[in-house]
């Protein structure tokens, strides 16, 4: 029974990581832009949920309202960032990392000045309180909700990329920017939409995180490192790798934690990823190219 409990804890952590990493896999994996402010977009989503609850009052309605609103808030922040800074820097990916780190610092401080440094709480709706009993195992409803939300987001993103004209444009630009432009696709517009969606997913992740505990200005920094590790281990260019890597990382963390301590588990996960990159330097799923890398 212990093993099943650990399994669920791992899957639950994995689903949180997946929500955090999904947007990253789109912006980093597909566009090559390393957005360190991604975590702060999550934080913005979380505070959106806080504000919405302050306005609406009812916890259930506010959660359902906050999810789309968080997507829009995160997305707009991302759009603003892309339009002002990132679009100048597509040729300098490493420098983008540092610039967006500066943006992250500023956003954190803004949150601290607006909402105060202490953490705030967002009430979970009544229909998410308590746990579902399955075979003597108590599975918290909030965790199940996040698991479901992660699955919905993955499916929605996969469908959007595969089946919509917009998704086709995004994939075309990712695969061959010049050829896509020659076929009449505006790569500028596509970049912006991609960034909007990726950052919006961070906002959704932030809303989901309010169900797990109180939120503060540094909410994003707690997840961003792990989310990047997920993308690195998962490989770039495909959602499949991100899903597998997030699940694997969550399970590893949970099982290492069970047999050692939380802090040692972090180190073990890191060592495992470096070792894994020895076998597959390109990550789990990689698009075969003829490039030298």
């Amino acid at each position: 029974m212990d093993i099943i409990a650990q399994l669920f804890a791992g899957l639950s952590l994995g689903s949180v990581l997946l929500l955090a990493a999904l947007g990253l896999s789109l912006t980093f994996g597909q566009m090559g832009v390393i957005n360190m402010a991604h975590g702060e977009f999550m934080m913005a989503g979380a505070y959106t949920a806080f504000v919405v609850q302050g306005v609406v009052g009812d916890a259930g309605v506010s959660l359902l309202l906050a999810l789309p609103l968080g997507f829009v808030v995160g997305g707009l922040l991302g759009l603003l960032l892309e339009a002002t800074l990132i679009h100048r820097m597509y040729r300098r990916p490493l420098d983008t990392l540092l610039v967006t780190w500066g943006v992250a610092l500023v956003l954190q401080q803004v949150a601290r000045d607006v909402f105060g440094a202490p953490n705030v709480d967002v009430r979970a709706p009544a229909w998410l309180s308590g746990a579902v009993q399955i075979g003597g195992l108590a599975l918290p409803r909030t965790r199940l909700f996040i698991l479901t939300l992660a699955i919905v987001c993955v499916v929605a993103l996969a469908l959007a990329l595969r089946a919509t004209p917009l998704g086709r444009r995004i994939r075309a630009v990712v695969q061959n920017r010049d050829l896509a432009e020659a076929s009449g696709i505006s790569s500028r517009a596509t970049d912006r939409v991609t960034f909007f969606i990726g950052s919006g997913l961070a906002g959704v992740a932030g809303v989901a995180l309010t169900l797990l505990g109180s939120i503060g200005p540094t909410l994003g920094t707690n997840y961003i490192v792990d989310a990047f590790l997920v993308v690195v281990a998962g490989g770039i260019g495909q959602i499949k790798g991100t899903v597998i890597a997030a699940t694997a990382l969550g399970l590893m963390q949970s099982f290492f934690e069970y047999s050692t301590t939380a802090s040692v588990a972090k180190v073990l996960v890191f060592v495992t990823i470096v070792a894994f990159l020895q076998l597959r330097p390109q990550g789990l799923v990689s698009v075969r190219t003829r490039s030298l890398a």
Partner: peptide, 12 residues
């Protein structure tokens, strides 16, 4: 493993 990947690993 280079570039951004190395940066992310060093940060982790």
């Amino acid at each position: 493993v280079r570039g951004a990947y190395f940066a992310i690993l060093s940060q982790a």
